[in-house]
Nucleic acid binder design. Sequence first.
DNA 1: GAGATAGTTGGACCGGGTACAACAATACGC
DNA 2: GCGTATTGTTGTACCCGGTCCAACTATCTC
Lengths: 207, 207
Amino acid sequence: MSFPSDPLVPARRAGRRPASSRAAIEEAAGELFLENTYGGTTIEQITTRAGVSRASFFNYFRAKSDLLWGDVDVLIADVASRLSVQRHDVAPLDGIRSAIISLVADITPDRIPLAITQWELMGVREDLLASGLPRFAALAAIVQRHLESRCHLAPALETRAAAFAVVGAVAAASELWASGGPERGSFSGMLDRAITPVCEGFARSVR
Amino acid sequence: MSFPSDPLVPARRAGRRPASSRAAIEEAAGELFLENTYGGTTIEQITTRAGVSRASFFNYFRAKSDLLWGDVDVLIADVASRLSVQRHDVAPLDGIRSAIISLVADITPDRIPLAITQWELMGVREDLLASGLPRFAALAAIVQRHLESRCHLAPALETRAAAFAVVGAVAAASELWASGGPERGSFSGMLDRAITPVCEGFARSVR
DNA sequence: GAGATAGTTGGACCGGGTACAACAATACGC
DNA sequence: GCGTATTGTTGTACCCGGTCCAACTATCTC
């Protein structure tokens, strides 16, 4: 049972109901990207197939490239909360590694963004890169904040470098895992192998 | 004295002379960015001030954001040649570190891109980020190629992770150095402090 | 019903980027 | 000097992503 004040059920008070949904637009976009590549698909084509107006697209996404990153943004935002519940007696860098690994363990195959699994089919490399750095920068900022809050010995340069290096390792593992065929190993294992050396390297200067 | 076949002096053979130059456009752009920020300046304003047509802009730059990266692109390209002359008896990762550090040692203050020294004045963060990842990816690819060519023990995952982590450290040091005031330390020293832990961490798995 | 509210839509507009054809200036062989 | 190939410049038309906004529509509550 849900109460009117239940915060989990927004309890719509008024207003017209959404005629579409992120999912519907994402689905239409995914089809078109596979047919015509990302660059060869216009927003208008996407919204037309989804049965919405072009103007509505921007009610659901801030940019076309958001379609490529699907759940990645929410995953990144999730990192912060997973970091905050880390115990204080584990080394900060180890906490970061386990937080990130625990995150990907929760990923179900259907939540993996199309752009990642279909990579080259969509001819999407350049656009992915262009829209990617802000995401990685956001993740790095989260990691760095955590390091600064948990470390006694933590010069700004080293925390920042460690954060960026961790994110770099994550990116490397993600890209390799994404482009790997079906015989690729587990994502968690790859992330571990990529991140652990970074943690070891910075263990002395960031703790 | 220069001979007609001197490859360093292209010895113009025919054709109209350039009416403008990259430098002239960069200068006009720099002024306008300081006056109106990057986002508040149009390509047309830039070319008008430089006394060229808008169409000509794209003879000199592939995109507006190229103006932000000035010499960075040539520096990145330079890394490859500096890596190729590394002796084979130094650890590959150490070679990468010293190649990068030697590179910045050659930077004269006047070659530092405006966008880096004027950072926040130009309100340029988002655009820098958006156009930055392709550059960093290019650098990472160079680093990774070098690792693969020099390493006996080098699984693809680890070389890629090491390359990305190194680039992350470089990015962190660069950003911190760029945003630091006049009392900031030496760029080389900061790079060293940022990269060394990465090299140490990957020394075991990439060699 | 009357509001208030939330969502949709069309249209105007801006600016980056591409494509291309016409034009201008230079070097060279004759 | 004169054609000609070459190189660079310019105007123009166009596409597309993204912003802005005012009009409209459907829903909820009183």
